[in-house]
Design a protein around this nucleic acid. Structure first.
Lengths: 279, 279
DNA sequence: CAGTGGTCTAGACCACTGG
DNA sequence: CAGTGGTCTAGACCACTGC
């Protein structure tokens, strides 16, 4: 089970013994029961605590936007010191899975909050001020159930021919069509998603995924290229055929590195640019 | 000067008093003397310690690749606990300014190390394996001293007409010209840089900057667009005029958010892609 | 005011590195 | 083996939030 080093203090035999019993059905919720064999033996205690919190997040014990238990509560639940819980939460916060708010608590992060509503969209107006251009207007061109091609299936870890939802839409900023994108979602998980639902939902699409399907995108990988607009793309974006466009292929993951969305976007970059910070 | 809260422990009056005297010429090296008024009052102790370490890094007290003093030594120097120093170094490590190596020490990070030699270059071969394509071959097309245009000057925080070094070069991977880039450096700081020096230097250009000019690029901002190759660009990259190319404008900073290089690159993306990880 | 996360300390032990 | 960073704990106090 859990690896426990020699008692860290000299006078804490009880705490030490207790810590070796983290995994028994001590913890409320179904998470602990779900994956009994997934316990990563031989790693620092705080990593194991992090893993346990992760399981609870994944199992939906706390929903996006909700507060998780206080550090003291978690320390008591897992029978470790507050400092150890703190270090576990530090890492979760660094990965943007939770957000700490002094005096209030630690909250499950969500794509629904205003200040992170474009967390995965790096396209910025050249003015640099996203708010100045107002909210994006979205036009759903297509939303249908199709069979996954070999390529789509591979990206989403499905089998060729499995059902996937394919969506095509155009985003316009200040009335100017700027992004044309297609995306594919596993049909099983997103059963019942309709164009109407997407069109009427206020807020980011990723927030809709959280609310309606319980799917939280936690990270993504993008591959970016320069391409020339073909006739159809040019028409949809109201520009000349052959115009250079930024091609952005994004694979988004939920917990445990499970891919959940493949998105292919074409961005016009005469008035906007893709911004990236390196360090 | 420094803000010091009430004594944290009950039985540590000495340590508490000592901590309020961090700034006197207690510290070896010239750093402490250099910026007497830059002390950020009213911030957590570890942030202040971080700032002091930063000043020493900036002043060159420890060179890239060298080890900085151990946590114990720094704790003694600054009269704080090891844990406080640790938290300061944690942040510096998170910003890639230093690298920790268990059992060995903490080292000033450098662009010269093999595994980070393309820290700022996000272009990847489609195969995904940078090593497979071998080292880049560099062709310096131009390296001359010019007067800064208004635009260049603004980016580099200079005055229009100030001397800047302008370099143009082509990078080829596996014999295929892939990147055409121009970059501009402040003439004062990089006095004496020649095309020969750049051509003969083995390793990343940013490593040369560290070794020969003591300039460490610590972060950068990129703006990415899709553009069509003009006649000259097409010829230099050996492709057809009008080919879509990725335009990458990078502004690199050294310590204290001082801009030190403006770089404009054109990447061909038929065999490579710009890779970005979002979280 | 109580409860939360944030800071700071002190001390013990572990894991890794190199002489 | 000594020295380094890494983990873990316990306890105190600070800063912020909301009742």
């Amino acid at each position: 089970m859990i690896r426990r080093k020699a008692s860290p203090g000299l006078n804490l035999p009880d705490a030490s013994m207790a810590a070796s019993q983290i995994f028994p059905a001590d913890t409320p919720g179904a998470a602990a029961e779900a994956a009994p064999s997934a316990t990563p033996a031989f790693s620092p205690l705080y990593q194991q605590i992090k893993g346990l919190i992760l399981q609870s997040l994944e199992a939906g014990e706390w929903k996006p936007g909700e507060a998780i238990p206080s550090e003291m509560d978690l320390a008591a639940r897992f029978r470790v010191s507050q400092g150890t819980v703190r270090k576990a939460i530090d890492e979760l916060a660094a990965e943007n899975l939770v957000v700490r708010r002094q005096g209030k608590g630690t909250f499950v992060s969500t794509h629904a909050e205003h200040h992170v509503r474009y967390r995965f969209l790096k396209l910025m107006p050249d003015s640099g001020d996203r708010d100045a251009e107002g909210p994006a207007s979205r036009t759903i061109l297509e939303c249908r159930r199709v069979r996954a091609s070999a390529e789509i299936a591979r990206s989403l870890a499905l089998r060729t021919g499995d059902a996937v939802l394919q969506v095509r839409r155009v985003l316009a900023f200040g009335g100017v069509p700027t992004i044309l994108e297609d995306f594919w979602l596993p049909g099983n998980t997103f059963k019942g998603l309709t164009a109407e639902q997407m069109a009427s939902f206020q807020g980011p699409t990723y927030a809709l995924f959280e609310l309606e399907f319980g799917v939280r995108m936690v990270r993504a990988e993008e591959k970016i290229r320069a391409v020339a607009a073909d006739a159809q793309q040019a028409e949809l974006l109201a520009l000349a055929e052959g115009t250079p466009l930024l091609s952005v292929e994004r694979l988004s993951y939920t917990y445990n590195d499970v891919p959940m969305e493949l998105r292919r976007g074409l961005y016009r970059t005469d008035t906007h640019h893709y911004r990236n910070d390196l360090s």
